[in-house]
């Protein structure tokens, strides 16, 4: 790759400027700007009600904006809804599969909605069933599938048209850890294949695993935007020391602890202390006569970034 190539501006698939959505007096999305480039995995991270799903629906050309500008693949969703939707694969927060149909028929019917030929869909179904690890369930009705299987089928369904952008709204909410890991693995494969992913999540581990770039949202606004590592570097220290003194004593020690590190957060059940060398910090805490009932040194995460930016925990 030449130097000129590497410096060329990547192609923007989605561009938003001053995007706003109001429902009566309530502002769900408050004038946000963002850009999503081809082949990147872009995440909206924020608590419930942050405006992530609303933004996703505006991008999906199924919800009209109140004001601002947005283009998806260079087109305005309010003018070219069908032309945009033709190139999106949408995985909604709640599965909306046809429960009366079999796994295979769900894929077939959905492919037909995109006007794809029967022959093309038949071949595609084989690939998608393998991808979603549902080959043995092909003739089973959807209502008999587990939550994780339904989620994988919904993702497979969204891929039937080979979309330019795959949009996933809270893809692993409600799934058990094993089902989440299987799903992450599938999404990671897509990412490796260069599919542009757009993900909303309130799970920081999911955002860290899957997203190249993240937009942290709260109350309809963008709080920060960067890569997961960049956000952690910018808004947190390398390490965090978590100490517990017991619910009623955490606040009591807070003033003493505050002077010992860059920043602390007092949560109801523990105190978080931010420092670049937390082992040394823990020694210092103990040497000053404070003996936490439990202590833990860990790396900073996006949870810490969110706490710093909003003063609130991400999963409440």
């Amino acid at each position: 790759m030449s130097a000129a190539d590497s410096q060329a501006t990547p192609e923007a698939l989605i561009l938003a400027k001053g995007l706003r959505k109001e429902y009566g007096d309530f502002t769900a999305v408050d004038g946000i700007d963002f850009r999503v480039n081809r082949s990147e995995s872009f995440g909206f991270l924020g608590p419930n009600g942050a405006g992530k799903s609303t933004t996703m629906r505006i991008i999906a050309a199924t919800l009209t904006r109140t004001s601002g500008e947005i283009t998806i693949l260079g087109k305005d969703p309010e003018i070219s809804g069908p032309e945009i939707r033709a190139h999106l694969g949408v995985v909604p927060q709640q599965d909306n599969l046809d429960n009366a149909l079999t796994v295979e028929d769900n894929l077939y019917v959905y492919g037909r909605y995109f006007g794809l030929s029967k022959k093309f869909i038949r071949n595609k179904i084989e690939e998608l069933l393998a991808f979603a690890q549902l080959e043995e369930k092909r003739s089973v009705k959807v209502e008999a599938l587990s939550g994780g299987m339904k989620r994988r089928l919904t993702i497979a369904r969204a891929l039937v048209s080979e979309p330019e952008i795959l949009m996933l709204d809270e893809p692993t909410t409600g799934l058990d850890p094993q089902a989440r890991h299987i799903l992450w693995d599938r999404l990671f494969r897509l990412k490796e294949q260069g599919v542009t992913l757009l993900i909303t999540t309130h799970y920081m581990d999911e955002a860290e695993q899957l997203c190249d770039r993240l937009m942290v949202m709260d109350k309809g606004k963008i709080m920060a935007e960067d890569s997961p590592a960049g956000l952690i570097k910018k808004y947190s220290t390398k390490e965090v020391l978590e100490v517990r003194f017991g619910a009623d004593r955490n606040a009591q020690y807070a003033d003493q602890l505050r002077g010992m590190c860059e920043r602390i957060e007092v949560l109801p059940d523990r105190v978080l202390m931010y420092s670049h060398d937390c082992e040394a910090l823990l020694h210092e805490v103990v040497s000053k006569g404070m003996h936490p009932t439990t202590s833990l040194v860990r790396r900073s995460s996006l949870e810490d970034v969110f706490l710093r930016l909003t003063g609130r925990s991400l999963v409440e």
Binding site: A86, F114, G115, A130, P163
Partner: peptide, 19 residues
């Protein structure tokens, strides 16, 4: 085995036909 073949929706989909 688990990768998907890809022509892409821009090649595959005929929007006027769906309309």
């Amino acid at each position: 085995a688990n990768d998907l073949s890809r022509k892409g929706s821009l090649t595959l989909i005929d929007v006027p036909k769906i309309l």
